[in-house]
Measured scan of single mutants.
Amino acid sequence: SYYEILDVPRSASADDIKKAYRRKALQWHPDKNPDNKEFAEKKFKEVAEAYEVLSDKHKREIYDR
């Protein structure tokens, strides 16, 4: 789930989600993982997609249904 990707509970606040996104984006940024760039790019995209949905109140409500 998007919550698992960002490592936050379903009850996470918008601020918690933003902090988790920043932490995970740094962790999986391809430039930070030169030895495993392809895998890092995949993870980085997953993190971005999760944040896009969970950071938008309307999209998150739909996702949580």
Score class of each variant (00 low, 15 high):
Ala12Asn: 01
Leu54Trp: 01
Ala48His: 13
Arg60His: 03
Arg60Phe: 02
Ile17Phe: 04
His58Gly: 12
Leu26Lys: 13
Arg22Trp: 15
Ala48Ser: 14
Lys32Cys: 14
Glu52Arg: 10
Glu49Met: 10
Glu46Tyr: 04
Ile62Leu: 12
Ile62Val: 09
Glu61Thr: 05
Ala50Lys: 00
Ala48Glu: 14
Ala25Phe: 15
Val47Glu: 01
Pro34Cys: 09
Ile17Pro: 01
Arg23Leu: 14
Val47Phe: 05
Leu26Tyr: 10
Asp31Asn: 09
Glu46Ile: 06
Phe44Asp: 03
Tyr63Pro: 02
Lys45Ile: 08
Lys42Tyr: 09
His58Tyr: 13
His29Leu: 11
Asp64Thr: 03
Pro9Tyr: 05
Glu49Val: 07
Leu6Glu: 00
Ala40Ser: 10
Ala25Leu: 15
Trp28Ile: 03
Leu6Gly: 00
Asp15Phe: 06
Ile17Cys: 02
Glu38Arg: 08
Glu52Ser: 11
Lys19Cys: 12
Gln27Met: 08
Tyr2Gly: 01
Ala14Tyr: 14
Ser55Arg: 10
Ala14Trp: 07
Tyr21Ser: 03
Arg60Thr: 02
Lys24Phe: 06
Asp64Gly: 02
Tyr2Leu: 12
Ile17Tyr: 01
Asn36Leu: 07
Asp31Ser: 13
Lys57Gln: 13
Glu61Asp: 14
Asp64Gln: 02
Arg10Ala: 09
Ala40Met: 06
Glu38Pro: 09
Ala12Arg: 00
Ala14Phe: 15
Ser55His: 07
Lys19Tyr: 07
Glu38Gly: 08
Asp16Met: 12
Leu54Thr: 02
Lys59Leu: 14
Leu26Phe: 09
Asn36Tyr: 05
Asn36Gln: 11
Lys45Cys: 11
Tyr51Gln: 01
Leu6His: 00
Glu4Phe: 07
Lys57Cys: 11
Glu38Gln: 11
Tyr51Thr: 02
Val8Pro: 00
Tyr2Phe: 11
Ser13Arg: 05
Asn33Ile: 04
Glu38Val: 10
Asp31Met: 10
Leu6Asn: 00
Ile5Arg: 05
Ala48Pro: 00
Pro30Ser: 07
Ile62Gln: 13
Asp64Ala: 01
Asn33Val: 05
Ser55Glu: 04
Asp15His: 12
Lys42Cys: 13
Ser1His: 10
Trp28Thr: 03
His58Phe: 09
Lys59Met: 10
Lys19Leu: 12
Lys32Trp: 12
Glu46Asn: 04
Glu41Trp: 09
Val47Thr: 04
Ser11Tyr: 14
Asp56His: 05
Asp7Ser: 10
Pro34Gln: 13
Asp7Trp: 04
Val47Tyr: 05
Pro30Met: 04
Glu52Trp: 13
Ala50Val: 03
Arg22Ile: 15
Leu54Phe: 01
Arg23Gly: 07
Tyr3Cys: 01
Phe39Cys: 10
Glu38Met: 09
Glu61Phe: 07
Lys19Thr: 11
Ala25Trp: 15
Asp15Lys: 12
Tyr63Glu: 03
Glu4Ser: 09
Ala14Asp: 14
Tyr51Ile: 02
Tyr51His: 04
Asp35Pro: 05
Val8Thr: 03
Leu6Thr: 00
Ile62Thr: 08
Asp35Ser: 12
Val47Cys: 10
Asp35Phe: 13
Tyr2Cys: 06
Arg65Gly: 11
Asp16Arg: 06
Asp35Gln: 12
Pro9Glu: 08
Ile17Lys: 01
His29Cys: 10
Ser1Asn: 14
Gln27Asn: 04
His58Ser: 13
Lys57Phe: 12
Asp15Cys: 10
Val8Ile: 13
Ser55Tyr: 10
Glu41Ile: 12
Ala48Lys: 14
Glu52His: 10
Glu49Gly: 06
Trp28Gln: 02
Asp31Phe: 05
Leu54Glu: 00
Arg23Ile: 15
Asp56Gly: 03
Pro30Val: 06
Asp16Thr: 09
Leu26Ile: 12
Lys45Trp: 11
His58Cys: 13
Ala25Thr: 12
Ala14Gln: 14
Asp35Arg: 11
Arg23Trp: 07
Phe44Ala: 07
Asn33Ala: 04
Lys32Gln: 15
Glu4Val: 10
Glu41Thr: 11
Phe44Lys: 04
Ala14Ser: 13
Lys59Gly: 04
Asn33Gln: 06
Ser13Asp: 09
Lys42Pro: 02
Asp35Ile: 08
Val47Leu: 14
Lys42Phe: 10
Ala40Gln: 05
Ser1Arg: 11
Glu38Asp: 10
Val53His: 07
Leu6Arg: 00
Glu38Lys: 09
Glu4Asn: 09
Val53Leu: 04
Val47Gly: 01
Val47Lys: 00
His58Thr: 15
Pro30His: 05
Lys19Met: 12
Asp15Tyr: 05
Lys43Gly: 02
Lys24Met: 13
Lys57Thr: 14
Arg22Asn: 15
Ser1Asp: 15
Pro9Asn: 08
Leu26Gly: 10
Ala25Lys: 10
Leu26Cys: 13
Val8Lys: 01
Lys24Leu: 15
Val53Phe: 07
Glu46Ala: 08
His58Asn: 15
Ala25Pro: 00
Asp35Ala: 13
Glu49Phe: 06
Tyr3Ser: 00
Ser11Leu: 08
Val8Glu: 01
Glu61His: 09
Asp7Val: 03
Trp28Lys: 01
Tyr21Ile: 03
Ala25Cys: 14
Ala20Thr: 01
Arg10Asp: 06
Leu6Val: 01
Arg10Met: 13
His29Lys: 07
Glu46His: 05
Ser13His: 06
Asp15Ser: 11
Arg60Asp: 02
Ile5Val: 11
Val53Trp: 08
Lys43Glu: 04
Phe39Gln: 09
Tyr2Pro: 04
Glu49Ser: 06
Asp56Thr: 05
Ser55Lys: 09
Lys32Asn: 15
Trp28Pro: 01
Asn33Met: 06
Glu38Thr: 10
Asn33Cys: 07
